[in-house]
């Protein structure tokens, strides 16, 4: 099983290595614009819970970015599936559905970790040094586990690459803006806060922000992310089986 998992992962890494010179600038552009527009220009004189807005924003951007970048593995899978038919090569090989999903999820996590590193470097350039401790990286890892697992499952269910774009617009983009990335959730009415707490990104933003600002994150956030990730992972394995028809 490990052998096949590594084969799937290795393929994604080879492709990513080929594209790295294009990927790094693309990982930098959006966070850089958010930092300039919201962090530097708009939030210069804003303070939240004793921290500058820039300090508040960067962990949120990391949560958002690790979500979008790990979810982006879905597009890679769809291009391989619908345009290049490479999914068939893997399906015809002695690779179990479990190994396939694990390999792709691992690739999504790697992508998220690399893009997080890019944001941390940008943060340093803007004069913000976060505490990148174990709980911080665990938050990033679990958040990307949740969304890369979701990505693999959805990539198996969609019938075209266009459907995938729609899913990103309706699922990922709202979460990116509402999950406590740019503003404190306390600004919402109570019913809104309860609703937003259902989203895994909210727990990721809370955990990553608390850990990176030197506070103690809530363990429940990690438990929610781990449980959601495991659920999505199992569903994804089932979706791979379904994709054969």
């Amino acid at each position: 099983m490990i052998h096949s998992l590594l084969a799937v992962y290795y393929r994604e890494m080879l492709i990513m290595r080929r594209r790295l010179t294009r990927l790094i600038p693309s990982w930098s552009v959006s966070p850089l614009l958010y930092l300039i527009a919201f962090g530097y220009a708009m939030g210069k004189h804003v303070e939240i819970d004793g921290h500058s807005y820039m300090e508040f924003l960067i962990p949120g951007l990391i949560a958002m970015n690790s979500m979008t970048q790990s979810f982006a593995i879905a597009s890679e899978i769809n291009i391989a599936r619908f345009y290049w038919h490479i999914f068939e090569e893997i399906q015809a090989a002695p690779v179990s559905d479990l190994s396939y999903v694990a390999g792709e999820v691992l690739a999504g996590i790697t992508r998220a970790i690399l893009s997080t590193t890019v944001i941390l470097i940008l943060g340093t350039i803007f004069g913000v040094n976060l505490s990148c401790n174990f709980m911080f990286w665990l938050g990033v890892l679990l958040n990307s586990f949740v969304f890369s697992s979701l990505a693999v499952g959805l990539a198996m269910l969609v019938k075209s690459h266009g459907d995938q774009v729609l899913l990103t617009s309706f699922v990922i983009t709202p979460m990116a803006f509402l999950g406590g990335t740019f503003f404190p959730l306390e600004n919402f009415p109570v019913w809104g806060q309860n609703l937003i707490h259902i989203l895994p990104i909210t727990h990721a933003a809370k955990a990553i922000r608390a850990a990176s600002l030197g506070n103690t994150p809530q363990i429940s956030s990690y438990v929610v992310m781990a449980a959601t990730g495991c659920l999505f992972f199992v569903l994804s394995v089932m979706c791979v089986k379904k994709a054969k028809d």
Binding site: Y10, I15, I86, E88, E89, A93, P94
Partner: peptide, 24 residues
């Protein structure tokens, strides 16, 4: 298969290596 399903962005060697890895 009927349609070309090679990894276009990878080299000839890399395509064969991946297949070898998939088949342990």
């Amino acid at each position: 298969p009927q349609s070309i399903n090679l990894d276009q962005e990878l080299s000839v060697y890399e395509n064969l290596t991946i297949h070898g890895l998939l088949f342990r």
